[in-house]
Nucleic acid binder design. Structure first.
Lengths: 234, 234
DNA sequence: AGCCCTATTGACAATTTTGTAAATAGTGTT
DNA sequence: AACACTATTTACAAAATTGTCAATAGGGCT
């Protein structure tokens, strides 16, 4: 048959990435899909389609779907910690504490970290691992101790914040707070910030408040301020 | 050959449920799987296995997998609202507000509501969606218009709480707060309570605090108290 | 008892998804 | 230029998952 195939036009162009950048792109796409389409978006095909590559390529770089998900989990935590540390390091303009909470809240909600975290928690591949009743053993590997790292993030933050609180209390002529109270406040703050990042828009909406991007940012600022008055009471 | 099949022992025993109770059991099992195994547990086979029935039975009652998930979403909201309303109705011993927050937090975290809510939010079948067009009316599902109901839950709560705040402010000789401030506080409270319910254990753990059941309950009480002082400042 | 309705099941089809193996094609090296 | 290495793809196999359909059986009814 008159095969009208113009070999000239054929473009078997492949883009060849370095293993590192390939993994990065794939992880990014996976995170993107997760935050956009939810846990159901975490199919090899979906992710591959998002990058316009074949799913086999993903398997080549991560061995298996589970390998990818594990890497995604690890990567999310690494990224979160990196961004947080960077935020900690940056000089804050204005109220130091408020500004910090502000940044953290933004990091959590802006990039997909809140959803990534939620997914990890839900699918049981996160740091929490209540380890309640695992039917058939199986997953006994867990290459790295990410848990201890992240598990202690707030813990490592506690002394610093507590020192600030002690200073503050002295300045205000108040009695010195307990370290555990500071810990509780940190845990509470983390819960609130996470909740805001994950469900803030819904809650604003449910309260009858405007929930566009600007209002959301404004709300975040207000939340940061509110929490600050808890941690550093007048 | 020597087929040692004792027909006497054969137990083709089927349990025949009413459609209502079948749906209920299936929805419960689905919720159970979701909170236990995460979104990946939401396979027809998994749910069916949990109930020791065939997956066809589920399809019979819900038409399709999506039908089940929709029903699960609706049911979760209905249940949450029911439990909340019941909690609202019950007389509170002690601080009314604190007690209420307390109960809400417990409801959210104890039963799987927090995770159900999170799943809904992530998979995009939550209430934040159908917000706009409620007047469509085409879908005459018997259940209820849960979205609109819940979407305005905090909104409908606002006047009540605000009245309390006005009274409180007068008693304390403070200037009257704005209604939007009350709304923001409600939204904030919702975020915090949800965050605590969903990730409280992790956060406690991350802060270096004990995270057993008792400590968790204690922490919830403390959170409730803390929030109360925000809503009703001294 | 016999009959009807339908919840339930088992077997099967269709589609999706993960995984495997060999072929293809960039990229750097000699 | 020829070669080696391997990222990438294509084609295919295997498993899992959803959905269909006819047969089975539980429970209410007369």
């Amino acid at each position: 048959m008159s095969k009208t195939n113009f070999k000239i036009l054929e473009k078997p162009k492949r883009r060849r990435r370095t293993p590192a950048s390939a993994r990065r792109e794939i992880l990014d796409a996976a995170g993107r899909q997760l935050t956009k389409a939810g846990p159901d978006g975490l199919r090899l095909q979906t992710i591959a389609a998002d990058l316009a590559i074949s799913h086999s390529s993903i398997l080549h770089h991560f061995g298996s779907r589970d390998g990818l998900l594990d890497a995604l989990s690890k990567d999310a935590f690494a990224g979160l910690e990196r961004d947080l540390k960077q935020s900690f390091a940056q000089p804050s303009s204005g109220d130091p504490a408020t500004d910090l909470f502000d940044k953290i809240a933004e990091i959590l909600s802006e990039r997909g970290y809140a959803r990534l975290l939620a997914w990890q928690l839900m699918s049981g591949r996160g740091p929490g691992e209540s380890v309640a009743a695992d039917s058939a053993g199986g997953a006994a590997q867990s290459t790295v101790g990410d848990e201890s790292e992240t598990g202690g993030l707030l813990d490592r933050l506690a002394p610093t914040v507590h020192a600030l609180r002690l200073d503050h209390a002295r300045d205000q002529g108040m009695s010195a707070p307990e370290i555990d109270e500071t810990r509780r406040l940190l845990a509470f703050t983390a819960c609130a910030v996470f909740g805001e990042a994950f469900a803030g828009e819904l809650m604003l909406h449910a309260s009858g408040l405007p929930h566009d991007t600007d209002s959301r940012t404004q709300f975040r600022h207000w939340v940061a301020k509110t929490i600050e008055t808890q941690v550093f009471p007048d």
